[in-house]
Each structure stands twice: as structure tokens, then as C-alpha cells.
Nucleic acid binder design. Sequence first.
DNA 1: TATTGTTATACTCTATAACTATA
DNA 2: TATAGTTATAGAGTATAACAATA
Lengths: 156, 156
Amino acid sequence: MTGMPRKALATEAEPSEMALESLVGYNLKRAYVILQNDYRAVMGEHGLSPRVFSALTFVVETPNLTQSDLARRLGIERSGLVAIVDELEGRGYLRRVAVPQDRRVQALSPTDAGVQAYEAALTLVHAHEDRMLQTLDAGERDQLLHLLKKIRETGE
Amino acid sequence: MTGMPRKALATEAEPSEMALESLVGYNLKRAYVILQNDYRAVMGEHGLSPRVFSALTFVVETPNLTQSDLARRLGIERSGLVAIVDELEGRGYLRRVAVPQDRRVQALSPTDAGVQAYEAALTLVHAHEDRMLQTLDAGERDQLLHLLKKIRETGE
DNA sequence: TATTGTTATACTCTATAACTATA
DNA sequence: TATAGTTATAGAGTATAACAATA
């Protein structure tokens, strides 16, 4: 005998009736999970994770970046950044460079391979976002970015 | 001697120039983290976590809900739901009720205390969202919900 | 054979605390 | 004293695989 059909017990409720559906936080999380899952699928098993890609972007775009700078910009602790920088260094995408003026510090310098990997990854990310946001027109996409930045400004 | 001043090494780059700033995924994650941190602060150290609150909402609003139903609706695995239901049962907010028609199943039935806890938590969550979204007018908030739901529809 | 609830296990992400070397 | 980078450790949150009971 086959198992019970889906939803045999639970009464079907219109999603729009659910209190959760009118909460921004709940919808934000669901959308975030969907985007992240597709991101990982697009980047592949050995691709850069979201946080490593973000870190590489800062390293490529910001000259003379230190780890403490980067941690602050990413909004994480210095300790958590070590593994991220280790991975990027292990892939040959950046070097830890000694800074004579302050020997506590090591500046993060992108390699040529790191710049190329960043550009290749960015192309994949753009394709991923275009596909995930295909039901939004250009105006809606700008509006979404604008509203998300407003939330960021409130909390940062 | 005090340490180096902030940003002594890294050149300041306008955030709007960064490639990350035009990515929906990056802004979605940053906004999600901000909302989640405030949520946890509002709910308190012993408050319901986001996933437990979401689960309680489904239990209160959906009669005769089973664990498999709930896992599917939350978008997580059945195995991951056990700890969530254990916590809600431990707090006295729901009961696992045997279902005579199918003895594999235990329906999740909210207690009076569970309904009260849900309503109290929902009030806190609404206050939290009103504060975090204070810079958005009613139209912007509706638009944000609309756009997030569009992303959910694309990926579910 | 398939499904429900469950346990065991592992992996990712992140935080806190403490250490060292420098300032 | 304070900061930069690091290590050790722990806690969420989630996934996969396997199991017993039941369909």
C-alpha cells in the first residue's frame, strides 16, 4: 500500500491568511534561502561560497586592505575571517603581505589569478541573479535594492 | 601608544562603487542579518528563535498538522524538525497527539499556553518590524513584501 | 515498498575567549 | 594598555543516512 497522500490531515490554509506571510522578516529569510541555494548550485561544488566571494571582492577592489578592515566591512569577527583568508590564499587568489610601518599587520593583496577568479565568479553571479530575478522588471529590481539598502542603513 | 587609527591602510571606497552593492543577494543577506539580530534582541535570551516561532505559528494556525507537513511548509528536513517540536513541547506550547487513522503519525496540537505565547510573541515581532522598517512608508513596505514573494515564487 | 518519526553524525557559519607579537 | 592576527572551542542551523513502527 502506498503512504498517506500529502496534506491528508492538515487543513489547507491560504498562504495569504497566515500571519507569517505579512512579516517582512519571514519573507526575507525565505527569499534569502532560495537565492543562496541557487547561488551554490551555480558556483558548483568547489566554487566560492558567498562569504568567500564577498571577501575576494573587497580584496580586489580595495587596495591595502587589512584583515581587521575586511572583517569590519563584512560584519564578522576577526577570528572568523582567518579561515576565509586561508582559503583564498590556499587557492592562490591573494597574498598576506607584511607592512613595514606596522609589523602587526598583513595587507591582503590580490594575485592575478585572484582578479581573474573574481571576474569569472562575478559573471556567474550576474547570470544567477538575472535568472532568479527574471520575474522582476528593471524598475522593480532597482526598487528592491533601494528598499534593502534602507533596511541596512537603519541597522548599521 | 594607542593603536593605528581605523582605515589607516585601506583606501576608502564609496560603497556605491563596489560591485557587491548592486547585487541583490548581498544586500538581501545583509538586511536579513540585521533583521535577525534585532529579532533576537527583542525576543530576549530565552525567547523563541525565528524557526521555533515560525513553527509555532503553523501549529496554531493549522489544525491537525503533522511533523512531515510542518517540515515541508518550513522548507526543512523532517529530522531537523524533531528538536524544534521537542522545544515547543518542552515549553508546554504543543502536544504530540496520536492519530487513530494512521498510527505512524502524531498530530501537533497547540495548548492554551502555546496560543497565548504565540500571540505575545507576534506582538513583539510586530513591534520589532515596525521599528526596523520605520524608514519605509506603508507603500514601500507592501512593495517589499510583494517583491520578496515574487522571488519565493520563482524558487519554490 | 513507502512513509513517519527518530537518532546519529557531520558540516557550515559564527561568536567568545585567550594567546603572541607588536604598538 | 591597546590592537592585529591567530587558535581553540562551542553553539546554532541544517543535511544525509539509517532505523523501527506502521501503512
